[in-house]
Simulated assay, not measured.
Amino acid sequence: MADQTDAFRASTKFSEHLQNLLVELIDLHLVGKQAHWNIVGRNFRDLHLQLDEIVADARNFADDVAERMRAVYVAPDGRAQTVAKVSGLKPFPEGEISTSEAVDAISAALYGVAKTAREIHDDVEEEDPTTSDLLHTIIERTEQLAWMVSAENRTPQH
């Protein structure tokens, strides 16, 4: 059996930070699919396709975070009841939603995930710079996606 005495093991705080981010990424995936299935209105097709891209990124990032958690000896919890209880993202409306309203809700969810990643960044980096690299990637991409989605409802500032 391999000697694991020198293996990095996450602290409780580090574990909680990654768990919170994982939950929000899972929730972002679910919010994205809910919007994808229920949007109606102007620019439907473009937003419908863009939501697929957001969902794919959210799922991939959730998997990356969960696998990083396992690598540092933390058991991720992605159960539905945990996501519902812990996620800080605003609930997505039920039923059909206009593309304009969906743009605002999805943008808020993306910025919410980026905010969580930013809030935990310094603690994570102090304990494990490798994991902070993953946070950099998540922040960069979620903020880019939020900017791209939110541009749908913006008007030029003069």
Score class of each variant (00 low, 15 high):
E53M: 02
D133F: 06
Q81L: 13
A66G: 06
F61N: 08
D27Y: 00
N38V: 03
F44R: 07
L51W: 02
I97W: 08
E101H: 14
N43D: 14
E96F: 15
F44Y: 11
T5F: 10
F92C: 05
L18G: 00
R154I: 03
R118Q: 13
L47R: 01
D6Y: 12
L21C: 06
E152Q: 12
T99A: 03
T137G: 10
N20R: 13
T116R: 13
T12K: 15
V65D: 06
A71R: 07
T131A: 05
K85G: 04
V113K: 01
T12D: 15
F92W: 07
R9N: 15
A109E: 00
E143A: 02
S11C: 05
A2H: 10
Q144C: 10
D77C: 08
G32E: 03
D27W: 00
A10Q: 09
T155Q: 13
T99I: 03
L135C: 01
N60Q: 13
V83R: 05
W37H: 07
D27L: 04
F92K: 01
Q50N: 13
I139N: 08
E152G: 11
L110I: 02
M1Q: 11
N60C: 01
S150L: 07
V149P: 04
L18Y: 09
V55D: 00
H17Y: 12
H136V: 11
P129I: 05
A62T: 02
L89E: 00
E125L: 05
T131H: 04
L21F: 08
D57G: 05
G88R: 09
Q81R: 14
V31L: 13
T5I: 06
S107G: 15
E126Q: 14
V86N: 06
G95T: 08
N153M: 06
V40E: 14
I39C: 00
G95K: 09
S132E: 04
V124E: 02
M69R: 04
E53F: 04
M69G: 03
R9W: 12
P76M: 01
S107N: 15
A62W: 01
F44D: 05
D6R: 14
R9Y: 12
S98I: 00
N60E: 13
P129V: 05
D3W: 09
K115F: 06
E24M: 06
A75G: 06
M1I: 11
V72Y: 08
T142N: 05
R68S: 10
P129L: 02
A108P: 01
D6E: 13
A80P: 11
V149G: 06
L30C: 12
S150E: 13
P129S: 07
H121C: 02
D46C: 03
S15H: 08
T5Q: 11
P129R: 03
T155W: 12
P93F: 08
S100H: 15
